[in-house]
């Protein structure tokens, strides 16, 4: 349970999942933020105004998945590192997961990294397709990974270091 071990449950996640239809149309954000805390950079950073908190700063973030275009700005801005982008629009078996990363060394596009789930367990080696800087001030990078579609709702981190150039 989230409040005992830090791992969100399937039930928690169900509340923030975009529809399969929306996921198939392209990149969209998923806010894995389940506690009423005084925080709202997700709301103020989104250029599309896709994230709102009708009940004020302690509200949970609510994403209008129709307004969200998956740009990823909120991912590097969120202090909880709780926002991820998933894109299932490509044909075939692979999806792209974009996640926040604040460690050194930084992997490079084209390298292979270990994909970890919400408990830190490893699920194999996956290819980095893009590394984006959050800016000189923000300093949070986002890493886009190619993963099998069935793992796109599992992989939420990468193992630090030991990156490979070949799978």
């Amino acid at each position: 349970m989230l409040s005992k071990n830090g791992i969100p449950t399937a039930e928690d996640l169900k509340k923030v999942m975009p529809s399969e239809e929306r996921l198939a149309r392209g990149a969209v954000s998923i806010t894995e933020c389940f506690q009423n805390i005084p925080c709202n950079p997700c709301v103020t950073s989104c250029p599309q105004k896709a994230i709102t908190m009708p009940d004020g700063i302690n509200d949970l973030p609510r994403v209008d998945h129709e307004l969200c275009n998956g740009c990823g700005i909120c991912v590097s801005r969120c202090p909880g590192l709780a926002i991820f982008i998933v894109d299932k629009s490509a044909g075939g078996d692979t999806a792209v997961v974009r996640l926040p990363f604040e460690f050194l060394p930084l992997p490079q596009a084209g390298q292979y990294v270990r994909g970890l789930d919400r408990s830190g367990a490893e699920h194999g080696w996956f290819k980095v397709v893009r590394v984006t800087s959050g800016g000189a001030k923000n300093k949070t990078y986002t890493i886009s990974l190619e993963v099998p579609k069935e793992l796109c709702m599992e992989i939420r981190n990468i193992g630090i270091g030991g990156y490979r150039d070949e799978q």
């Binding site: 989230l2 409040s3 071990n5 830090g6 791992i7 969100p8 894995e32 933020c33 389940f34 506690q35 805390i37 202090p79 909880g80 590192l81 709780a82 970890l116 789930d117 919400r118 408990s119 830190g120 367990a121 939420r156 981190n157 630090i160």
Partner: peptide, 13 residues
């Protein structure tokens, strides 16, 4: 905050 907890849990702690 649980987001801080999740952040280290997914590093395997």
């Amino acid at each position: 905050y649980l987001v801080h907890a999740s952040k280290i849990r997914r590093l395997g702690v």
